[in-house]
Design a binder for these strands. Structure first.
Lengths: 130, 130
DNA sequence: ATATGTGCAAACATTTTGCACGGCT
DNA sequence: AGCCGTGCAAAATGTTTGCACATAT
């Protein structure tokens, strides 16, 4: 366990659930400014390879990461207006997954991308606080 | 209808279904090399605003576009290995949409991001043709 | 005439890469 | 000695922006 890796893990732990790559970068810089961006990315990749971390694509090109210490996937849904992400159980897409499997032989990786939509607050809110 | 816009529309029409932003750029360059990248992006944005075009986020940061001349959304599922995209009817996520609406007041925009997974070919194939 | 669209270059944001160096085993 | 991880700088990628000029209506 090296210095940069410790910092990355601490940064991941500092927030529950998903963390934007950008937030990790910032948090690591705060914890240990000597750690380079590239090392952060390399560490994240390594953690994903090992399986304790899941990376999630949020619609707008941003990438987020999600610890999965229990080995289970999560589902994500993001509001495209306020960018808030809601975590959901994978089971929600089980039916869709089996449909895809039956009709297209396609294996769904439900947690890999976040679904998109609009949350209550943003649907209710007008244009005022954009 | 200006020169760049004509070129963009022709590029979009040249392929059925979804088109990667990159493919549009290339195709437009072939049709009319005098058209600048920035104009292509601006035109795509304008078409989306008007509603005849839908932009879709494919997991790996790439953006694609999909004509919706009939005003209906499509669903997309992408194989993260070979990047192939399958188009599907929106209805597939209707149940999920209403669940989200009921439990989180969340309005799903099913077509906005492509679901991710592995297609038959890639699941069957070993590592040979990566 | 006025509003809109355009080419250009440059900025931008994010992630990846080649490289030489460092420490541990 | 050998391997892996590191910092650094630079490249790669994909998209956006400020600006002055051109074009459409």
């Amino acid at each position: 366990m090296t210095r940069p890796r410790r910092a990355v893990v601490r940064a991941l732990a500092s927030r529950a659930g998903h963390v934007h790559a950008e937030e990790i970068l910032t948090e690591v810089a705060r914890i240990d400014p000597s750690v380079h961006r590239a090392s952060v990315y390399r560490t994240l990749e390594a953690l994903c390879a090992v399986g304790v971390l899941q990376h999630v694509h949020l619609g707008h090109g941003a990438t987020a990461y999600h610890l999965r210490l229990d080995g289970r996937d999560h589902l994500h849904v993001q509001c495209h207006r306020c960018t808030t992400v809601i975590d959901l159980p994978v089971e929600l897409l089980d039916e869709v997954a089996s449909w895809l499997s039956r009709h297209h032989g396609f294996t769904l990786d439900a947690g890999h991308v976040a679904l998109s939509g609009t949350c209550t607050r943003c649907a209710t809110a007008g244009d005022e606080d954009r």
